[in-house]
């Protein structure tokens, strides 16, 4: 009997409570969101080709409270992805492999502080 035909044991168990696991999943999800945004962003800027007013009208849309909120979420995704990425690159350089959880919380403090600054600026536009 080959392994493929066998029942798989305890699917869903494992280390779902491991911090590295959640950090990785969020890293993936934020990455995919940012790829989506990248294409939207390139398209928006390319509307400059249509004319000065067309682009400026498009920019005006971004002052809508909902879009300002989405933009804040985007900033959160960028910060998470960038700072967790710093942790990953450090681990690739052999730095902090055993302390990866401590490094994770350290970079998350930086991310949260930066996000707070952006949120402070954005809140008046949302409410």
């Amino acid at each position: 009997m080959s392994a493929k035909d066998r029942e798989t044991a305890n699917v869903g168990s494992g280390l779902w409570k491991g911090l590295g696991m959640w950090a990785w999943l969020l890293f993936r999800i934020s990455g995919l969101i940012l790829v989506g945004y990248l294409f939207v962003h390139v398209w928006v800027i390319s509307q400059g080709r249509a004319g000065v007013d067309e682009l400026n009208d498009l920019f005006d849309l971004f002052h809508h409270p909902v879009l300002v909120f989405f933009e804040l979420m985007l900033v959160a995704a960028v910060l998470y992805h960038a700072l967790n990425g710093v942790r990953i690159v450090l681990m690739d350089l052999g730095v902090g492999i055993r302390q990866h959880k401590t490094v994770f919380w350290a970079v998350m403090v930086v991310a949260a502080a930066t996000l707070a600054v952006f949120a402070w600026q954005a809140l008046p536009s949302i409410f």
Binding site: M1, A3, R6, T8, A9, N10, V11, G12, S13, G14
Partner: peptide, 17 residues
């Protein structure tokens, strides 16, 4: 329980091939 996410042979024994 047997180790998670591995092919089961019987009870707590899994296929290590």
């Amino acid at each position: 329980e047997p180790l998670p996410h591995v092919p089961l042979v019987r009870d707590l024994v899994w296929d290590m091939e």
